[in-house]
């Protein structure tokens, strides 16, 4: 079942096409990472999904409800964290969260319990009585996450949720997002590839307003996996035997290329299964002392750079 669906959703600002017609479906319960560099169209997409901006063409649905109509009731079905969340500076976080629970019609004791729970979750329990105006960006970001979760929506739209957080805060937020897997659908935009790789099960890559691909993270990594083995030999014991080893390797039918750098070998193969069986006897035959043996796997960053034509995030 789809939690988020877009059909031909596009947005044009004057002559600039910020988002080219987007067709997208996000499965319920998944954590969807929306990757792209700054200005790629991530925030525009989220603003269209929330109804804060009107699409030039197309429609979007969250939990089956059209959200592209400004001022509708569907705001119950999603939680939204903007890139730079802004709050009423004169309020305390407890007052702000309480105001939201009232808007979401959460009653009585449950309301108080939810507010305290979110303050705890955001690590703002000690600052609950302080004015938000005095908060650091990181504290505001954590409050932003709390306000997005407060009504336990089935869908969460998070725009760069970790951008203002310190490493510990980032870790906690990513853990929290990961813990929602299966319970809520998370649509997470980010340009921090490591974050997406860590928590997302599905990845969409957008570049210059165009969706380049959508795939399961593991399938994507497998699809772009390179059949390269990296060997690092112990120095200086392994070095004398290394040249003889390379010479014999080059004669193997399953080897397509070898590069070496000091004590590290990168062996490209055309038949992974055969190479796994044949490599070890050769290593043993030449008496190489190994420090490391690794099948090289590309990171999302490398895939992204390849897909976006060498653009660096």
């Amino acid at each position: 079942m789809e939690a988020i669906r877009c059909e031909q959703l596009s947005k044009t600002f004057g002559d600039v096409q910020a988002l080219q017609p987007l067709d997208l479906a996000v499965e319920a319960g998944s954590i969807f990472g929306f990757l792209g560099r700054n200005g790629a169209g991530k925030t525009t997409t989220i603003r269209l999904l929330t109804g804060l901006a009107k699409p030039t063409t197309g429609t979007a649905w969250i939990a089956g409800v059209d959200t592209t109509q400004i001022d509708s009731v569907v705001r119950q079905v999603f939680g939204y964290l903007p890139q730079d969340p802004a709050f009423y500076a004169w309020m305390t976080p407890r007052e702000y969260l309480d105001y939201l629970t009232r808007l979401f019609r959460i009653d009585g004791a449950e309301r108080k319990r939810r507010v305290e729970e979110m303050l705890e979750l955001a690590g703002l329990k000690d600052a609950a009585g302080r004015r938000i105006g005095g908060f650091s960006r990181g504290m505001q970001q954590r409050l932003g996450i709390a306000q997005a979760f407060i009504h336990r929506p089935p869908v969460l739209l998070l725009d760069e949720p970790t951008s203002s957080l310190d490493p510990a805060g980032r870790y906690e937020v990513l853990e929290l997002i990961a813990s929602l897997r299966g319970q809520a659908t998370v649509f997470l935009s980010s340009h921090i590839l490591a974050d997406v790789e860590r928590v997302c099960d599905t990845v969409g890559i957008i570049h210059q307003g165009q969706l380049l691909l959508v795939a399961k993270r593991d399938e994507l990594l497998a699809q772009y996996a390179t059949n390269v083995i990296s060997l690092e030999v112990e120095r200086p014991e392994g070095l004398p035997a290394l040249d003889r080893f390379v010479a014999e390797l080059q004669a193997q039918s399953w080897v397509t290329g070898i590069t070496s750098s000091d004590n590290v070998l990168r062996i490209a193969v055309n038949d992974p299964a055969q190479s796994k069986r044949a490599l070890w006897p050769l290593v043993s035959k030449h008496g190489l002392a190994l420090n490391r043996y690794e099948w090289i796997r590309p990171s999302l960053e490398e895939i992204f750079i390849r897909l976006s034509g060498g653009m660096v995030l």
Partner: peptide, 16 residues
Amino acid sequence: ERGTAALILSKPLPRW
């Protein structure tokens, strides 16, 4: 300007 309107209007608060 501050962005408080965008955040609060993403909740069930009608614009009117």
